[in-house]
């Protein structure tokens, strides 16, 4: 097993063609809360990865969840994080990419899958396909509120991480999202509402 990544909550190991994702204990939080978060997120992630694939969104195939449920074993998806590619792309290529990301997000929401942490760090460009990963904060929900919040997380990550291309990327994303998801209208209205509810917003 070779350590290939250290995220905020998990270590990633490569073992042959498989990735082992281990949610590590955090000493800053009480043990009861720590165990609860690690196990529920790991199990939820396994379920949502499979559900997303059935909804037409590429995700790594899940092989196993250990007992008590803090380690996930899945297929290795080679390729760069979308986050790392954006600045080196041409404008047209970038728009196409975000249109496709929007379509994939639309497919998730059409199937009532909330990702929970939609950012370009959690998307892998592998060959011609874009894989969505890291569903640990996700849930199954038909609620417009949950879908609107999901989009807000994405929108804000563009603002903080890809500020130079924020408007262009968001516009392309929304185009793809609307096309893939017939229920997009009310979700986008709710998104605007949630933003206004926040502590800070411009205009």
């Amino acid at each position: 097993m070779r350590l290939i990544g250290r995220g905020a909550e998990a270590n990633l190991y490569l073992e042959g063609e498989e990735v082992v994702k281990e949610r590590i204990p955090k000493n800053y939080r009480v043990p009861e809360l720590d165990r609860m978060l690690r196990t529920t997120r790991t199990r939820r992630e396994a379920r949502l990865l499979s559900a997303a694939r059935r909804a037409g969104v590429p995700t790594p195939v899940v092989y196993d969840v250990d007992n008590p449920g803090t380690t996930l074993r899945m297929a290795h998806v080679p390729g760069p994080q979308v986050k790392k590619e954006i600045d080196s792309m041409g404008s047209k290529e970038r728009k196409n990419l975000f249109r496709r990301i929007g379509e994939l997000a639309g497919r998730l929401h059409r199937a009532h899958i909330i990702h929970g942490d939609l950012t370009t760090s959690n998307m892998i460009h592998s060959g011609k396909r874009i894989f969505f990963i890291d569903f640990g904060l996700g849930e199954i929900s038909e609620a417009v509120e949950a879908k609107g919040t999901d989009l807000l997380v994405f929108k804000k990550s563009l603002r903080s991480t890809h500020h130079e291309h924020e408007d262009e990327c968001l516009e392309a994303f929304m185009e793809g999202y609307r096309e893939a998801y017939p229920g997009a209208g009310p979700v986008l209205e709710r998104l605007a509402e949630i933003e206004k509810r926040g502590r800070y917003f411009v205009r």
Binding site: R159, T161, H163, I194, R197, R199, Y200
Partner: peptide, 16 residues
């Protein structure tokens, strides 16, 4: 601090 501004990476969505 990122790209000439103080960017907000996380914040509360409702109350502080």
């Amino acid at each position: 601090f990122e790209g000439g501004r103080y960017r907000v990476f996380g914040e509360t969505l409702d109350i502080a």
